[in-house]
Simulated scan of single mutants.
Amino acid sequence: MGLKVKKTYRFAIVTSLYITLFFTSLLVLYFLLNADFSWLLILLASVSVFLFSVFIIQYRSEMFIYQRVKKIYDDVSLLDSAVLRSQFITTDMATLEKEVKKYAISKKIELENLKVREEYRREFMGNVSHELKTPLFTVQGYIDTLMDGVKDKSLRDKYLERAQKGVERLVYIVQDLDMISKLEMGDVKLQYTDFNVVTLVQNVFDMLEMQADKKNIILMFDSKYSKPIRVRADQEKVQQVLINLVMNSIKYGKENGTTEVAIEDFINNKVIIRVTDNGEGIDASNLSRIFERFYRVDKSGSRNEGGSGLGLSIVKHIIEHHNEKIYVESKPGKGSVFSFTLEKAK
């Protein structure tokens, strides 16, 4: 590979050669006219002029370009001016061009991210407004009717029961929003313990048995787990993950269907827990967004099932807070499989 010379040095050397040639020509002409010719004196004078010219031109070029490069760096906020004063600053235009391009690309990416966030914020605020508005108007409507005076006790009890359901849904939304906010800000501290995940799954089945019975859905393991499978995680948070996933499988499952939980060995001293249903499934176009807050695959009917619309988002945040992974596979009409990993207890 040839020797790479800095552009400013090349400029200084070539310019100095021109100056030296001009100076040498004048000097030769002078000595010829005065008949006192000395090659040694001419050579020494030419070399001195050349070296002096290289030094002066290089120094002045460096300073001239440095001031302008420094101003460009300051203007685009690539580097702090204090850093520029304390460190070597390149005056190579190719390097500067590369830095400016890098800056432009980073700003373009930043602007694109801001646009995505702004779109997400608008959608999120619209979803929050809609989710809160529906139960609020429901509660308000029944309370207004009751205040007008309903003499029929059975009708009054019916309205109170529906108003209560609206309040419960508001509570779910507020509690889940609070949970997600804490998870995103890192305010939730995980309490790691060793526990038997098989027992935890069975407890979740017992808690949700009544909801499953309403649709004749069987909650089951994929096989008999005679030995405990111990994991290390926050037991309360993992229980919330399982409740949300099993509840979703019941909510969107077919009547007379099943919800099956499997616990299998995974790589790197981990286990993977799979929650499988044979419900309506999820279209591929929706899979990438199902963990977003308030995102619903069924924009109309899913709200009739209740809940806050934040269950899967909470699941994702809890699993990622454990530094674990969550996966989803689904086919419309065939059902869905939600899987997440946990670390085995030592």
Results as ranks from 00 to 15, higher is better:
25 S>G: 14
298 D>A: 15
127 N>H: 12
265 D>F: 04
35 A>G: 00
211 Q>L: 14
13 I>Q: 12
80 D>L: 14
79 L>T: 11
44 L>V: 04
138 T>Y: 04
22 F>I: 10
322 H>S: 05
38 S>V: 12
226 S>L: 09
84 L>Y: 02
59 Y>D: 12
331 K>C: 03
39 W>R: 08
255 E>V: 15
7 K>R: 13
73 Y>H: 02
62 E>V: 08
219 L>T: 00
144 D>V: 05
310 L>R: 06
337 V>Q: 10
235 Q>F: 06
274 R>I: 10
180 I>S: 01
155 L>W: 11
276 T>L: 01
23 F>I: 13
123 E>V: 01
220 M>D: 08
96 L>Q: 02
271 V>P: 06
92 D>N: 06
133 K>T: 14
123 E>G: 01
14 V>L: 09
168 E>P: 05
211 Q>W: 07
177 L>S: 03
227 K>V: 02
112 E>W: 10
254 K>I: 05
257 G>T: 10
321 H>N: 14
114 L>R: 12
211 Q>N: 13
262 A>E: 10
156 R>K: 14
193 T>M: 09
28 V>K: 02
249 S>Q: 04
99 E>S: 01
334 K>M: 15
52 F>I: 11
191 Q>K: 13
171 V>A: 08
342 L>T: 09
168 E>N: 12
96 L>S: 13
59 Y>E: 07
84 L>N: 07
142 Y>L: 03
247 M>T: 02
196 N>G: 09
235 Q>P: 13
42 I>L: 10
143 I>G: 13
147 M>A: 11
52 F>T: 03
